[in-house]
Simulated assay, not measured.
Amino acid sequence: MSIPNTPNTRRSFLGKALWLVPLASLQACDLPSGTAASPEGRAGPPGPTGANYVPVFLSKSEWAFVAAMSDRLIPSDAMGPGAVEAGVPEFVDRQMETPYAHGALWYMQGPFMAAAPEMGYQLKLVPRDIVRLGIAAANDACQRQFKKHFAELDHTRQEAFMRALQQGELALADVPAKLFFGFMLQITREGFFSDPIHGGNRNMVGWKLLGFPGARADFMDFANQNGAKYPMPPVSIGDANPKA
């Protein structure tokens, strides 16, 4: 999929793509787990969120990369806040400390080999490896070409570099470029539309963009009101006392 050039087109594309691709598809089956898998993978780092959040998995340069790339994938614009404002970097960092990111949910025995796409993911890399190795390789490629890391480039060069990743025009060390781009696109999307309890979708900006009601337990008062606009604000799983 290409990256549209204008923010409004990009935001429109994001909303349409959400309904075409299940948010949990990447976590459920697309990627395998590989080396360094931890059977007891943690459920996510505790502690403060938002401005006071301290990354647990991502290093300073990795955090900057994730923030820069997610900002280009879902930029803030006239329609609302973007990925950074929605807390996507925090979501990504927290996800890297889950059983999913450690590869604990997959069968991960060799052999690892090239295979047809319908055979599914065949690499030995777990999501944590894809993020860590992919960021390092991408920054090395930027350093060779621009003498700067990805986060230090202007937006035009960042988007051109991302397009090259997406189209597989770059040869990254350790991680296929198209796989890395697809992973970062998917996890950015997930962070923007996840329940805020996971660190992303701060202030439920993703849900408000789509008009999604969230985790309300009862919709009986609004059943059979075809075409009527749902009047209630979205509710997170963590909302003990949702507003009426």
Results as ranks from 00 to 15, higher is better:
residue 172 L to C: 00
residue 110 G to F: 05
residue 115 A to D: 03
residue 124 K to N: 13
residue 139 N to V: 07
residue 146 F to E: 08
residue 122 Q to L: 00
residue 170 L to H: 05
residue 107 Y to K: 04
residue 147 K to F: 13
residue 152 E to S: 12
residue 93 D to G: 10
residue 131 V to Y: 11
residue 98 T to W: 06
residue 155 H to W: 02
residue 160 A to I: 11
residue 168 G to L: 01
residue 154 D to H: 12
residue 119 M to L: 13
residue 168 G to W: 01
residue 86 A to D: 13
residue 100 Y to K: 00
residue 132 R to A: 14
residue 114 A to D: 12
residue 86 A to M: 08
residue 146 F to V: 06
residue 149 H to G: 04
residue 102 H to P: 00
residue 78 A to F: 04
residue 142 C to F: 10
residue 144 R to V: 10
residue 97 E to S: 13
residue 152 E to V: 08
residue 151 A to N: 10
residue 114 A to F: 10
residue 136 A to E: 14
residue 168 G to R: 01
residue 99 P to R: 12
residue 86 A to W: 15
residue 96 M to W: 14
residue 93 D to W: 05
residue 102 H to I: 00
residue 165 L to C: 02
residue 94 R to T: 02
residue 127 P to L: 04
residue 132 R to P: 02
residue 90 E to I: 05
residue 87 G to Y: 09
residue 92 V to I: 15
residue 126 V to C: 14
residue 90 E to Q: 15
residue 161 F to R: 12
residue 77 D to L: 01
residue 89 P to L: 10
residue 91 F to Q: 07
residue 91 F to C: 09
residue 166 Q to C: 02
residue 83 A to M: 07
residue 110 G to D: 03
residue 172 L to Q: 00
residue 149 H to D: 14
residue 132 R to I: 00
residue 138 A to R: 03
residue 138 A to P: 04
residue 149 H to F: 13
residue 101 A to P: 05
residue 102 H to L: 00
residue 159 E to T: 04
residue 130 I to L: 14
residue 100 Y to I: 01
residue 134 G to T: 08
residue 154 D to N: 15
residue 95 Q to N: 08
residue 106 W to R: 09
residue 132 R to L: 09
residue 168 G to H: 01
residue 138 A to T: 15
residue 96 M to S: 02
residue 156 T to M: 08
residue 98 T to N: 05
residue 86 A to H: 06
residue 163 R to H: 02
residue 117 P to F: 10
residue 141 A to V: 10
residue 90 E to K: 01
residue 76 S to E: 15
residue 81 P to Y: 11
residue 151 A to P: 06
residue 159 E to D: 11
residue 126 V to N: 14
residue 121 Y to F: 09
residue 143 Q to P: 03
residue 101 A to H: 13
residue 127 P to G: 04
residue 151 A to D: 15
residue 88 V to P: 03
residue 94 R to F: 03
residue 151 A to W: 15
residue 109 Q to K: 06
residue 148 K to P: 01
residue 134 G to H: 11
residue 121 Y to M: 03
residue 98 T to M: 03
residue 97 E to Y: 08
residue 87 G to P: 07
residue 112 F to I: 03
residue 94 R to A: 03
residue 108 M to K: 12
residue 166 Q to G: 01
residue 77 D to H: 10
residue 75 P to S: 02
residue 111 P to E: 08
residue 87 G to R: 06
residue 101 A to Y: 10
residue 125 L to Q: 13
residue 94 R to P: 02
residue 120 G to M: 04
residue 140 D to W: 09
residue 105 L to M: 10
residue 99 P to V: 02
residue 83 A to V: 07
residue 110 G to A: 07
residue 148 K to W: 05
residue 110 G to S: 02
residue 162 M to D: 02
residue 149 H to N: 14
residue 85 E to H: 07
residue 129 D to L: 12
residue 129 D to K: 05
residue 158 Q to M: 13
residue 167 Q to M: 01
residue 133 L to Y: 14
residue 94 R to Y: 04
residue 148 K to N: 06
residue 85 E to R: 12
residue 151 A to T: 09
residue 156 T to D: 14
residue 120 G to H: 07
residue 105 L to G: 03
residue 106 W to P: 00
residue 147 K to S: 14
residue 146 F to R: 05
residue 106 W to S: 11
residue 165 L to G: 00
residue 152 E to Y: 06
